Computed example of a mutant assay.
Amino acid sequence: MATGTLTIDLDALAANWRALDAKSGASTETAAVVKADGYGLGAARVARKLAVAGARRFFVAVAEEGAAVRDAVGPNAPIHVFSGHMAGDTDMLGDLNLIPMLNSAEQMVRHLEALPGHPFGIQLDTGMNRLGMEPAEWAAVRDIALAQSPVLVMSHLACADEPDHHMNRNQLRAFKEMTDGINVPRSLSATGGILLGSDFHFDVTRPGIGLYGARPFEDAATVVSLDIPIIQIREVLAGETVGYGNTWEADAPTRVATIAAGYADGLIRAQGPDGYALAGKTRCKILGRVSMDLIGVDVSHLEEDPESLRLLGPGHGVDTMADAAGTIGYEILTSLGARYNRRYKG
């Protein structure tokens, strides 16, 4: 078989949720963000495992993502939709019992008219300028909104992965100014905010990326491993090149393994010059450009020719690959392609 094997360790996922739950404090509910198909790992399998671990509240990006999660966690678990109540969402929100996080007065009017009595939350903008009501808009509709009994009021931190960034305290202050005194559960923190400490936790935390084994949760257990079969190994002579554009030239005889994956499988093209694979614990440098379906790797220093090489795993996680590609672990996870043979553990 020429496709790679993507192994998803659900026990590690659950362990990461429990660790972040412990950091959130006994008085704070720890939810789980399972948007983007569970960060590329399969929303249904991920949500079901997290529910078994103890998660009782879930977040998705758009209403369409709610169907798989609802099937996985049953009829009663709250599922919040970050994008709020968009035009055309009414039937889905109602049928699946999803909770839109309303981002504007316009969305609030749409929701109250289309689904009177249906649960909703409010998202506030505390400085990120992405989603949510800004202070003036919130002040104008606050009394009306609170009279309709929202189930959650939230905001989102822009720089939580940088603990010393002044924006964190600025947003905390803004959130408290906008919400102190309301009788509604509050939520400010995703993974990074949890790690900032109890001042940021409020009533509900929303870990996302940390569940899946990536920064800023440096103590996270590894969730994803990716093993790619070798199609062919060849001897490349000094002066010969590998891959498109002749970007790598051998300065000595080199054994080059061609592995069966590329950017069509979510392996970022830019990682070529700085990326590597693993044979056991031995690093093997990627040679030349990552192409659509194939990557060249230097295996000259190995005592035996392996049948496969590992691109993700313990000690070489999504952040390592992301660093080589000049991106972030989120992009690596959510780009992992459909061609892999997916194997779930736990």
Rank of each mutant, 00 (worst) to 15 (best):
H156M: 07
L226K: 05
L195R: 00
E177T: 04
W138Y: 06
G208A: 14
N183D: 15
L237S: 11
P163C: 06
I230T: 00
L172P: 00
A257S: 13
G245I: 08
T191R: 04
H166M: 06
G262I: 14
R255S: 06
A257R: 13
A174I: 01
Q232M: 12
T222G: 09
T205E: 03
G181C: 03
L172Y: 09
G193P: 05
H166D: 12
D143H: 08
V242P: 00
Q171T: 10
D227E: 12
I144R: 11
V184R: 10
V204E: 02
R173G: 01
E240D: 15
H156E: 04
V153E: 01
S155R: 03
P163M: 05
L195Q: 04
A214L: 09
L152V: 11
W138A: 02
P216N: 10
G239V: 01
T179P: 07
A238K: 14
T191V: 06
V141D: 03
Y263F: 15
F200L: 03
F175E: 01
D180L: 07
H156W: 01
L146H: 05
T222H: 04
Q232F: 12
T254L: 00
I194F: 04
D164F: 13
A147L: 13
C159F: 14
V184Q: 09
S189G: 01
A147R: 10
C159N: 10
E218K: 12
R186T: 14
A158P: 01
